[in-house]
Simulated assay, not measured.
Amino acid sequence: MELTEAIYGRRATRAYSEAPVPKDVIESLIDAAIQAPSAINEQPWDFAIVQDRQLLDKISTMAKAHMIETMPSGSFPEHLHESLESPSFHIFYHAPALITISAREGAWAIENATLAAENLMLAAHEKGLGSCWIGFAQRWLETPEGKQALGIPDDFVPVAPIIIGYSATPIASVPRRPPHLRWIG
């Protein structure tokens, strides 16, 4: 697959088959992730991989409750509140794997983890896998209980909880708005 094809073809996947993702495939995605640039070449990444269905279900339940409890009223569209309050809504869309990318706390932790996350998602697409960054999980994973659930070291910040799996349905292209450009000089 050409890089341009991966960039233009990767989309958020929210429906997964039950097929597990082999360990060697996950390791290859992480290898692609660590090829990302990092501030002053620190390479400060930590990857927590969860494939245990019961733990994924527990994290989904805890993260939903945390979001409901801590979300300011009106901060999200109403349909998101309704989803979070629905017992049948699983924030990981029943994907077979969650890879959470954390980075050592510091001035560029967010940037470092985000660069690795984009590489990981592009590599997943190239291998025929779907992926989706799950923002609903982030705030709970930052809590002491969330970090403990994934064994994230105290001096690391969880940034990118990304689900991975084989898509249950084809993902349609999403039109993009034209960019706002300002040519200076």
Rank of each mutant, 00 (worst) to 15 (best):
G146T: 09
M62K: 15
M1V: 08
A97I: 02
K147E: 02
L29I: 05
A15W: 09
E105P: 03
M1E: 00
A107F: 13
E69A: 10
T13G: 09
E18I: 00
E142G: 12
Q43S: 07
I34G: 02
L98T: 03
V50T: 06
A19Y: 02
K64H: 09
A12N: 08
H94I: 03
A32W: 11
E5Q: 14
V25C: 08
R176I: 12
L181M: 14
F92M: 14
E82L: 15
M67D: 05
L55D: 02
Y166S: 00
F136G: 04
I162K: 01
L98D: 04
P153F: 00
L80I: 13
M1S: 11
D24K: 07
F136R: 03
Q54D: 12
G151W: 14
I99E: 06
K58I: 04
P77A: 09
H81E: 11
T70K: 12
A33F: 01
I184M: 14
S73D: 14
G135S: 13
E27C: 09
P144K: 01
R176S: 14
M121D: 05
K23P: 00
L150C: 08
E5M: 11
H94M: 08
Q138W: 13
I134F: 09
Q43T: 03
M71D: 08
C132Y: 10
S38H: 00
G9K: 05
W45N: 00
Q35L: 12
L29N: 09
Q148I: 01
I110H: 11
E118N: 13
A137H: 07
D24F: 02
M121N: 07
F89Y: 15
S60L: 12
A113M: 08
I163L: 09
